[in-house]
Design a binder for these strands. Structure first.
Lengths: 228, 228
DNA sequence: ATAAATAGTGGACGACTGTTCTCTAAGTAT
DNA sequence: ATACTTAGAGAACAGTCGTCCACTATTTAT
């Protein structure tokens, strides 16, 4: 009944509750996978064995947590998009003067990439990777992310008369730019503030250009023929 | 001296000059690799052996042509970007009324993707793949492609006063959109004209929105502080 | 006709993979 | 103190991989 670390006379070492132990190795497996991907490997060049090894555990122990590498991958995707949603929420809840919104959004993006490099690298790498299961999972999440952003965008005054279609279109365009920016950031040496500065500036200018077109957008003019 | 297929009495089969033979298997290897990637595999899940097998050749024969899979990959990259350049040239050399340029450009893009699906799939898949060598090769080619497009853009009247920096920025933005479009096309079932139509329409609207911002672009306003 | 060059074969190697099965030791509940 | 449950170990498997080496058959050059 008492799950306190049963007081033993023998000294320090491995006296943990099973739940602790369990969560610890589980995380070690996830971390090991992320680490190897950050180091440049592609997801499906990782092997169950190498991940287990890096987590300090024997291959068979892996199966106590995931039925396959794919399943581990799905968990990583979930975790990563949790971070991305947190980023979106962060950006949404800040109140920033209108003319600094782009600037600030890019800042937030860049700082999140710096602080969660592994997760971003994972998502970026896996996005176009062969594995069908994971690729589709990611695509689905990205579509969801685009929709979330579209909802956010709808609250800006300039966009309040825009239809859902157009908002989605704009949102997708901005997300594309974000993704490209993320990939550039991941390619850059992590500590070169100069390179990072350039990438940031580029992203800002691109977003600015996009937004510049917004007031002039005529939704009807862009619909060819009587589709739908 | 006579390299004519030495007339032999024995019938039909394998009577080819060495050059023919050589080029044939080489291409078979390249094709086999492309095919496997189109089928969903990621580049570094391909093995030298499986490629050789699919090309109808024993593993060791592979080495007569490429020192490693990486080297084969580099050749595929070269070939693929040759196609991309051809596409750019094609688009450049057509004369299209100004208001149809976007429409036509997207059409050309879509048709090239349809007709060279394998190559595009290869580039898209490998772009974010782990393998450092190939990834960097691709990035380099894309940068080059962006510059080429920037040069082309410079000849449009609206853009004739734009500086190199701004042109690069715009070009990169358009290329990002193209890449995203390509990835969507590759994800879509190859024969669903409806899906393809939607993707095409989306790409057009995005490009149109971007271009809409062009006349209002003030290059100085986008430069923060006295950088450079 | 003869010799040299070369495309492709076939076997063997050591290394690494995913998976299965049995076993141990530690944590948990009674 | 006892029995149950569970995290992880360890050995073994069949399969695939990249690479090496010696060999054959065909094409080329003399």
């Amino acid at each position: 009944m008492v799950n306190v670390r049963t007081a033993d006379k023998d000294g320090a070492r491995p006296r943990r509750t099973q739940a602790e132990r369990r969560q610890h190795t589980r995380q070690a497996l996830l971390d090991a996978a992320l680490l190897q991907m950050e180091a440049g490997e592609s997801f499906d060049s990782l092997s169950l064995r190498s991940v287990a090894r890096a987590a300090g555990v024997v291959p068979t122990a892996f199966y106590r947590y995931f039925a396959s590498m794919d399943e581990l991958g799905l968990v990583l995707i979930e975790d990563s998009f949790r971070t991305l949603r947190a980023m979106l929420r962060h950006a949404r809840e800040e109140s920033v003067p209108a003319e600094r919104i782009i600037n600030r959004s890019v800042e937030i993006l860049v700082s999140y990439v710096r602080e969660n490099r592994q997760q971003f690298a994972f998502v970026a790498r896996i996005r176009s990777t062969g594995n069908g299961v994971l690729r589709h999972a990611i695509r689905a999440e990205i579509r969801l992310f685009i929709s979330d952003l579209a909802t956010d965008l709808a609250r800006f005054p300039v966009l309040d008369r825009w239809g859902t279609d157009d908002l989605q279109m704009l949102s997708a365009l901005l997300v594309n730019t974000m993704i490209a920016t993320i990939e550039s950031l991941l390619d850059a040496p992590p500590d070169s503030t100069e390179t990072i500065g350039e990438i940031t500036a580029l992203a800002e200018r691109q977003m600015r250009l996009v937004i510049l077109g917004v007031p002039g957008w005529d939704s009807d003019r862009s619909r060819r023929g009587p589709r739908r």
